[in-house]
Design a protein around this nucleic acid. Structure first.
Length: 713
DNA sequence: TGAGGAAAATGT
DNA sequence: ACATTTTCCTCA
């Protein structure tokens, strides 16, 4: 299908194609998978031609998905992201006017931030773009759903009063904003406006957004995915996936609810997040093979990711779809989105259920149209789950929703390439692998830093215009699945003397997004010294209806950066890159010592035998403490081993096994030892079991063996 | 603030 | 009994 649908490159509205598209090369590494993918260029083209709206590429057309996040990973500075191959996801958005979204002239920039003129926002109906997820099928749906509603894809323009440099999504729902209650963050609302209904392959497109996925717990009446509110609408959910949705409000909400004693049943996932069971699979074939998908994440993401099909689909959609089509057809209103949070509501609204469970509420409705409705729902929803006080966040200021989230911008769970044509968004300086996130009950723990000191930095290469752009940053997942906003962590804006970078907070679909100016005068490079990480309580998030991810042991995140580059054609080209994974728990940050091997499995009763422990994270002051416990668990004795510092190596400790205290042992004695780093208390250290293989040997071998023998392992 | 530690809670 | 998560304390 595909290809045909693409417009010829020549059509590329933008300037010389060549420039834009640099040939594949720009793309960089060719598409991983067999060439099926189109070069970025092509895609560009496709999208580009304004006229072409309809071209929807069948998903098939783009077999390959971008690897989620992948690009990022590679992120080693300097290293080009391989992922490039991905097509610009949504790049193709419709024709909107030139991006309304961005600033045009550099006007005053307060604080260095680019000033926005009064931005004019054009609303285009691209719907497709947004919801990345399921656009595939929309055509149909649209019609069905909104029969009369189609609107011309035209764009509307709004003039914003002014400029804060950035648009705030929040504006949208006034009410919503910070208040915890407003589950729907503004963003969401905003999104909803734009959102476009797309159906996940699996689900019927039209299901009510709210519909609860089957997978969901029966008990819950609500649909789970709501949270997303539509934004992301992710229909994607694979069961496994968590709807990102929920993420966050709480954060902002700040409220603390009493902790729920136990979260309702959540599904268990593998540590990586893989879900053990997936309720439904999307029928659609998963794109996995597609190059895009795999491209990159290697690092964190295992190649094997199990992405939910929906996610993939979304990605595909993004790539392939021509927003325009949908746009037209889709009545904006049609979508009911916002419900997200208020699943219940949604339910009411829509019968639903249809789907297979997974369906997240895709629906969107225009906020405008149903403003009150939304709010209500939100409130309701929140109440149910959270009693949170509102936050006083500043970003609450009103802005037109549209401004911020122009309809054309891709949802946060869309997989986007890190480079396309001449452009490449690259993380020049990676964040440290550990950063202790702070809870709402704590004070800030500062900004994420770089390993070598300083802070992470991101640069947009290949952009030669003089117009400043906005770099968006949000906290994404680091598991094996497709990159998506992390439900349990939110980016936290840090301000103060130590922060040199101006930033602005916005909320998109329950996900806090930090917007940082990318200025030509700075070479389109931003030093991210204003981003901290907030941890939301697992119980709060897990209770959300629609949330399927679990927080326990889900403590790794990635910084996800996005930039939207207005194209001459009026479309917006979006690039995204994710950082290396960052471990956010306190404990992990301490780098616990880990013993992988021990040279001895037994020792004479008198002890004295030397043992080599091989592992990681051993420090100069590491201590090894032996403990003997009776079969019933009774603590018999413990003793700190004598360490042979001379023989110790960074990854190995040589210790002397202390003599057993009970020399009348007639049967195997189980001895454990702890390896402690520095001040860490034993209780916080890893305990290893040393089990003498032969009881007799213990009893009878009174002579000590002081030298380790042979190869230990 | 920004951290570092750790006790108190919870979850397995 | 442990492993993890959250809340508190302290300090610079």
């Amino acid at each position: 299908m595909p290809s045909t649908s693409f417009p010829a490159p020549s059509k590329f509205p933008l300037g010389p194609p060549a420039a834009v598209c640099g040939s594949g090369e720009t793309l960089g590494p060719a598409p991983p998978s067999g060439g099926t993918m189109k070069s970025a260029e092509e895609e560009h083209y496709s999208y580009a031609s304004p006229g072409v709206r309809s071209t929807l590429l069948p998903s098939s057309a783009q077999p390959s998905l971008p690897a989620p996040g992948h690009d990022l990973q590679t992120s080693a500075p300097g290293v080009p992201a391989t992922a490039a191959s991905q097509p610009p996801g949504y790049g193709g958005a419709v024709d909107s006017g030139p991006s309304s979204y961005f600033l045009s002239s550099g006007h005053a920039r307060p604080n260095g931030a680019p000033a926005l003129e009064s931005p004019r926002i054009e609303i285009t109906s691209y719907m497709g773009l947004h919801h990345g997820n399921n656009q595939f099928f929309h055509d149909v749906e649209v019609d069905d759903v909104l029969p009369g509603s189609k609107r011309p894809p035209s764009t509307a323009t709004l003039n914003l009063p002014n400029l804060e440099a950035y648009r705030d999504p929040s504006c949208l729902s006034p009410a919503s904003s910070l208040s915890s209650r407003s589950c729907n963050s503004e963003a969401s609302s905003y999104e909803s406006n734009f959102s476009y209904p797309y159906a996940s392959p699996q689900t019927s497109p039209w299901q009510s957004p709210c519909v609860s996925p089957k997978t969901t717990d029966p008990e819950e009446g609500f649909p789970r995915g709501l949270g997303v509110c539509g934004l992301l609408g992710s229909p994607r959910h694979s069961p496994s996936t968590s709807p990102r949705t929920s993420v966050t409000e709480e954060s902002w909400l700040g409220t603390r609810t009493s902790r729920p004693s136990s979260p309702c049943n959540k599904r268990k996932y593998g540590l990586n997040g893989q879900q053990l069971t997936s309720p439904h699979h999307s029928p659609t074939p998963s794109p996995r093979g597609s190059p895009r998908v795999s491209v990159t994440d290697d690092t964190w993401l295992g190649n094997s990711t199990q992405y939910t099909s929906s996610a993939i689909v979304a990605a595909i959609n993004a790539l392939s779809t021509d927003g325009s089509l949908e746009l037209d057809g889709v009545p904006v209103k049609a979508r009911k989105t916002a419900l997200d949070h208020c699943p219940s509501v949604a339910l009411k609204v829509e019968p639903a259920g249809e789907d297979l469970g997974t369906t997240p509420p895709t629906a969107e409705f225009l906020p405008e149209e149903f403003p009150s409705f939304q709010h209500v729902r939100k409130g309701a929803f929140c109440d149910q789950y959270l009693s949170v006080p509102q936050h006083p966040y500043q970003w609450a200021r009103p802005r037109s929703p549209t401004a911020y989230g122009s309809p054309t911008l891709p949802a946060l769970d869309w997989q986007l390439p890190s480079r396309s044509g001449p452009y490449e968004l690259r993380i020049e300086v990676q964040p440290k692998p550990h950063h202790r996130a702070h809870y709402e009950t704590e004070g800030s723990r500062g900004a994420v830093k770089a390993s070598a000191g300083g802070h992470p930095s991101v640069q947009l290469h290949g952009y030669l215009e003089n117009e400043p752009l906005t770099l968006q940053l949000f906290i994404g997942t680091a598991d094996d699945r497709l990159l998506r906003p992390h439900a349990f962590y939110q980016v936290h804006r840090i301000t103060g003397k130590t922060v040199s970078t101006t930033s602005h907070e916005a909320i998109l679909s329950n996900t806090k997004v930090l917007e940082i100016p990318l200025l030509p005068e700075n070479n389109m490079r931003a030093i991210v010294d204003c981003a901290g990480i907030l941890k939301l309580r697992n119980s709060d998030i897990e209770l959300r209806k629609g949330e399927t991810d679990i927080g326990r042991k889900n403590t790794r995140v990635r910084l996800v950066f996005r930039v939207h580059i207005p194209q001459p054609s009026g479309r917006m080209l979006s690039l995204q890159v994710a950082s290396n994974p960052i471990e956010c728990s306190q404990r992990s940050a301490q780098e616990l010592p880990l013993v992988e091997k021990q040279s001895a499995a037994s020792c004479p009763v008198l002890g004295g035998k030397k043992m080599v422990l091989s592992g990681h994270n051993f420090l100069q002051d590491s201590k090894v403490i032996f403990v003997e416990k009776a079969p019933d668990g009774h603590h018999i004795w413990e003793m700190e081993a004598k360490m042979d510092r001379e023989l110790c190596q960074p990854n190995s400790l040589v210790v002397e096994i202390p003599p057993f205290r009970n020399q009348r042992i007639t049967s195997p004695v189980q001895v454990s030892f702890y390896v402690c780093n520095g001040k860490r208390k034993r209780s916080q250290c890893q305990r290893f079991t040393y089990l003498p293989a032969n009881g007799n040997a213990l009893l009878l071998a009174l002579s000590t063996e002081n030298e380790p023998r042979g190869p230990f392992f």
